[in-house]
Simulated assay, not measured.
Amino acid sequence: MRSLPPFRSPAGIVLAVVLAVGLAVPSAGRAQQAAAPFDGDLQRLAEILGALHYLRGICGASEGLKWRSEMQALVDAETPGGERRTRMVASFNRGYHDFQQTYRACTPAANLAIRRYLDEGAKISRDLTARYAN
């Protein structure tokens, strides 16, 4: 099995998103506000992180809780509580459980899904950073 490249420095990408989004929205009362314009992208990124957490585990990446930790950092920085946090956590869990129901072992299709999610997650992160960084 061929080793896949890392999430183009996942910690760096998630950190960049957290910083960009954190600078774009004032923090006071942010968790109780209505959805931010970038919430859809953050929820999709959360879903991708959940899928990667499951898929990389069954495909022998030996990353442990890496993807869950990235998600936790994103949630902690962006949504300290409230409905926004609930939606992001639900997205992560949906990404995880959808693949858990489909794949019990690593397959070529699972590896393809990993590659696609790594690319999509990197694109969302770059786009968010470019759009909301000051």
Rank of each mutant, 00 (worst) to 15 (best):
Gly81Ala: 15
Arg131Lys: 11
Ser3Pro: 12
Asn111Pro: 05
Arg131Asn: 08
Leu4Arg: 06
Leu112Ser: 11
Leu112Gln: 11
Ser27Glu: 15
Pro10Arg: 00
Gln32Gly: 11
Gly60Val: 09
Ala24Tyr: 02
Leu15Tyr: 08
Glu47Ala: 08
Gly22Ser: 12
Val17His: 01
Gln32Trp: 07
Ala61Thr: 06
Arg30Leu: 14
Pro108Cys: 01
Val89Arg: 00
Ile124Tyr: 03
Leu4Asn: 14
Gln72Ser: 12
Ala11Asn: 12
Arg115Trp: 06
Ala73Asp: 12
Ala105Leu: 11
Gly22Leu: 04
Tyr96Met: 08
Cys59Arg: 00
Leu4Asp: 12
Ala73Thr: 09
Val18Arg: 03
Arg2Val: 13
Arg94Glu: 13
Ala122Met: 08
Val89Phe: 02
Gln43Pro: 05
Trp67Met: 11
Leu15Glu: 15
Pro80Tyr: 00
Val18Ser: 05
Arg44Gly: 03
Lys66Val: 13
Ala36Ser: 07
Glu47Phe: 01
Asp39Arg: 02
Arg126Lys: 07
Gln33Glu: 10
Arg126Glu: 14
Thr86Arg: 05
Ile114Leu: 06
Met71Thr: 02
Tyr132Trp: 04
Pro5Ala: 14
Val14Pro: 05
Gly60Glu: 14
Phe7Gly: 00
Glu70Gln: 07
Ser69Met: 10
Arg104Lys: 10
Arg94Gly: 06
Thr86Ser: 06
Leu52His: 01
Ala73Gly: 13
Thr102Gly: 01
Val75Ala: 04
Thr102Lys: 07
Gly64Ala: 13
Glu83Thr: 10
Ser91Gln: 09
Pro26Met: 09
Ala28His: 12
Leu49Val: 03
Leu65Asp: 13
Leu55Phe: 01
Ser3Trp: 14
Cys106Thr: 09
Ala90Tyr: 01
Asp39His: 02
Glu63Pro: 05
Thr129Asp: 13
Ala105Met: 13
Tyr132Gln: 03
Pro5Gly: 15
Arg104Asp: 15
Leu65Ile: 09
Arg8Leu: 14
His53Ser: 13
Val25Trp: 04
Gly64Glu: 14
Ile48Phe: 08
Val25Asn: 00
Pro6Phe: 05
Pro26Asp: 15
